[in-house]
Write a protein that binds this DNA or RNA. Structure first.
Length: 194
DNA sequence: AATTTGCCCAACCGCAGACTC
DNA sequence: GGAGTCTGCGGTTGGGCAAAT
């Protein structure tokens, strides 16, 4: 009975899974240093790792990439996440793109473990006037809204006023959190139209 | 001290769009 | 234009750990 290939094309049995070892990290970092962070399948092969390309990419983006900030999300960052989520929905990569050094995975985890609970808790205590509550009114369930809600807004041309790209996700973006925070304050006005 | 429960986060999976031939 | 491959994204899972019992 042949082993069914996974999405990377490699037989499941031959692919290493689970936590990365420091040795694997080192090998991956070395290859990326030489060949750059692209052609992930080739990177995995060159590094001699029994990992699929996707796994290598994820490891690089979420852990090995330079300028990564880990843990200790500040109050300012948290506020920014809340505001951006209100505008963009579960578009974690876009939100992460506005938070230098933060990854989409980290923000997604932070949202799911901290902020979504905060919002629920706040909602439970009554009142629907804060922007956090508006958020849940816009997108009833953060976990299921996903691309749909944000895509809907894109279809309505609502993201035109906020031209987000991910090119600056490495932290080179000159825009700082304070600027973005102030911008979002202004931008909230369009929510009244919803 | 042992077991259970709940939380956090790294990693995986499936899908869709972009790219290449 | 179409098929195959690659890349990026968001949702979900499961292992490890700490707190609670």
């Amino acid at each position: 009975m042949p082993v069914a290939p996974n999405s990377s094309g490699l037989p499941k049995r031959e692919v290493n899974r689970g936590a990365w070892t420091t040795q694997e990290d080192r090998k991956l970092a070395q290859v990326i240093e030489v060949h750059g962070p692209r052609r992930w399948k080739a990177v995995a092969a060159k590094a001699g790792l029994s990992r699929c390309g996707k796994s290598c990419r994820l490891r690089w983006l979420n852990y090995l990439r330079p300028n990564i900030k880990r843990g200790d999300i500040s109050v300012q960052e948290e506020d920014l996440i809340l505001r951006l989520h209100k505008l963009l929905g579960n578009r974690w990569s876009l939100i992460a793109g506005r938070l230098p050094g933060r990854t989409d995975n980290e923000i997604k985890n932070y949202w799911n473990s901290h902020l979504s609970k905060k919002i629920k808790h706040k909602q439970h205590r009554g009142g629907r006037s804060t922007h956090m509550q508006q958020d849940s009114a816009l997108c009833t369930d953060g976990a299921t809204m996903g691309r749909g809600c944000a895509a809907q807004r894109e279809a309505n041309g609502m993201t035109n006023c906020v031209n987000f790209t991910q090119d600056d996700s490495t932290g080179k973006d000159p825009m700082n959190l304070e600027w973005m925070s102030r911008f979002l304050e202004m931008d909230e006005s369009w929510l009244d139209f919803l």
